[in-house]
């Protein structure tokens, strides 16, 4: 199980690095929002990994909260984006 934890941690780190690259580079604010949404999803995946490895269930409520925060965040930004660049 420890091996799996390390492998998955590695994959998630690479994914987070790629998403952060897009968040820094991203030409428009929508690109950045999208990239940060992915970072949130990766944080959620890390929370699940933490729960499986350490055998507890304390993060479940965080998982629900994170998906709602991501939703509200991207909808809010998309709502207020105009063609001013």
């Amino acid at each position: 199980m420890t091996v799996v934890a390390y492998v998955m941690g590695g994959i998630l780190s690479v994914a987070a690095a790629l998403a952060l690259y897009r968040a820094v580079r991203g030409p428009s604010i929508l690109d950045r929002v999208l990239a940060l949404d992915v970072v949130l999803a990766i944080i959620g995946a890390a929370l699940v990994l933490n729960m499986v490895v350490n055998r507890h269930l304390d993060n479940l409520i965080l998982l629900v909260t994170i998906s709602l925060i991501g939703f509200i965040g991207s909808v809010t930004v998309a709502r207020f984006v105009t063609d001013r660049k």
Partner: peptide, 9 residues
């Protein structure tokens, strides 16, 4: 998640 990262870039 990795698919999302690669796709983003």
């Amino acid at each position: 998640s990795l698919a999302a990262g690669i796709g983003l870039v």
